[in-house]
């Protein structure tokens, strides 16, 4: 398939204009985070002098570093929990045959119909009752089990030849060993996809961290940003933007590294 030059030009024009428009809010934030407050107040588009003051201030006035660590720990916990639980469940649905399997599978599907937002009140009471408010466990535990992750991994586990499983049975290999030494290594790519997705979504969580944390020691960076935004004077936009950029940097890097895998994995998990 070759394209005429004029057609190519049209596409490049469309792509560039769209990219500029789409990325503009982020670019504005990026530029502002390097501006002095005077530049911002006078409505400059480009910083007159590039300064790191806003970043220094953001770290000085808020326990931003602690927030980042908290977010990192919570996201990592959720990601690992999801990978473990989803892969175990997917293994059972693909490689084990037992009574009631289909019913259980239906229950997994049914979980997708219950929005977490509709069950926050009892969940808050449960976590409070277990004395888990303001703990990493309370922040992450409710998100370990995910039907989506199970479906995604199930699609990939199904591509592993059944003969492998039969051979493992003949050699007397147990299910746990087969799951650990054969299935997980073979499905590495899909595990990475789910891991990236899980990390992205947990890092960006808002409602649950807002409810389940009340002090700075475990608060995640998203809620920190809300604090920063509501406490800062309106003429300190540079500091707020610097905070915003610090928050998105880890996920943007992760997204750019894993974009191809994510796109493939998510489409397969969603459609097949």
């Amino acid at each position: 398939m070759t394209m005429s030059i004029s057609k190519k030009l049209v596409f490049y024009l469309l792509l560039t204009v769209s990219a500029l428009l789409l990325f503009a809010p982020a670019i504005v934030a990026f530029l502002m985070s390097f501006m002095s407050s005077q530049d911002i107040l006078t409505g400059k588009i480009l910083p007159e002098t590039w300064t790191l003051d806003n970043y220094i201030k953001a770290f000085e006035r808020f326990p931003l570093f602690g927030y980042l660590m908290n977010s990192f720990i919570v996201s990592l916990l959720i990601t690992l929990g999801q990978l473990l639980l989803s892969s175990m469940a997917a293994y059972a649905f693909v490689f084990l045959e037992f009574k009631g399997r289909d019913t259980l599978f239906f229950i997994f599907i049914a979980t997708m119909m219950i929005p977490f937002e509709a069950s926050i009140i009892p969940n808050f009471q449960t976590i409070r009752g277990l004395d888990l408010l303001n703990t990493y466990t309370g922040l992450s535990l409710p998100f370990f089990a995910v039907a989506f992750g199970t479906f995604l991994l199930r699609q990939h586990f199904k591509q592993i030849p059944k003969e492998l499983k039969e051979a493992s049975e003949i050699t007397g290999m147990g299910d746990v060993k087969f799951y650990l030494t054969v299935v997980l290594p073979v499905a590495k790519t899909s595990l990475v996809t789910l891991g990236v997705y899980g990390f992205l979504t947990s890092w960006n969580m808002y409602l649950w961290p807002l409810l389940s944390t009340t002090d700075d020691t475990v608060r995640t960076v998203q809620i920190g940003l809300k604090q920063l935004q509501s406490q800062e004077q309106l003429n300190e936009w540079g500091v707020i933007m610097a905070g915003g950029l610090i928050v998105v940097l880890p996920t943007l890097i992760l997204l750019f590294l894993g974009q191809k895998k994510l796109q493939k994995g998510l489409t397969e998990g969603a459609i097949k």
């Binding site: 992205l200 998203q222 940003l225 915003g244 943007l252 997204l255």
Partner: peptide, 13 residues
């Protein structure tokens, strides 16, 4: 890219 930008950050922008 906006998939990697959290609701909180996007709101600030």
């Amino acid at each position: 890219s906006t998939m990697g930008i959290s609701v909180a950050a996007a709101s600030v922008f």
